[in-house]
């Protein structure tokens, strides 16, 4: 019992590089761009997609990308603790797979 519905508006920064990951998101309506440190787009988020959690898979607690709303809409946010708790149940071999996936999503490989 932890989800919140939040409106998002064009230009709103949902999280920025270096910020602690306190909450993660599911985009319901609108669109969001994920930017790297050079302000280049590294990903686009469409409706019904989870985002803002990839670094947690790598065991990091800070965002390495920035999420900016490009068209207004709604997100469902939830505490990052939920993802952390869910990740704890993965065994080492599954974790390694998830970490590789996270690296790819974050554009590091």
């Amino acid at each position: 019992m932890s989800g919140n519905i939040e409106p998002i508006v064009q230009g709103q920064v949902l999280f920025d590089i270096g910020q602690n990951i306190n909450k993660c998101f599911i985009l319901q309506k609108g669109s969001v761009h994920i930017m790297n440190g050079r302000d280049e787009k590294v990903g686009g988020i469409g409706p019904n997609t989870m985002f803002g959690f990839t670094e947690l898979v790598k065991g990091k607690s800070e965002h390495s990308t920035k999420a900016i709303c490009v068209s207004s809409g709604t997100v469902v946010s939830f505490p990052s603790e939920i993802i952390k708790n869910k990740l704890e149940v993965y065994k080492e071999d599954s974790k390694s797979f998830l970490e590789t996936l996270a690296d790819q999503i974050l554009g590091k490989k």
Binding site: S2, I26, M50, I82
Partner: peptide, 14 residues
Amino acid sequence: MSADFDFGNFLDLQ
């Protein structure tokens, strides 16, 4: 009440 979120059910558009 512990914090949890039922992603499976929520992400199913139906």
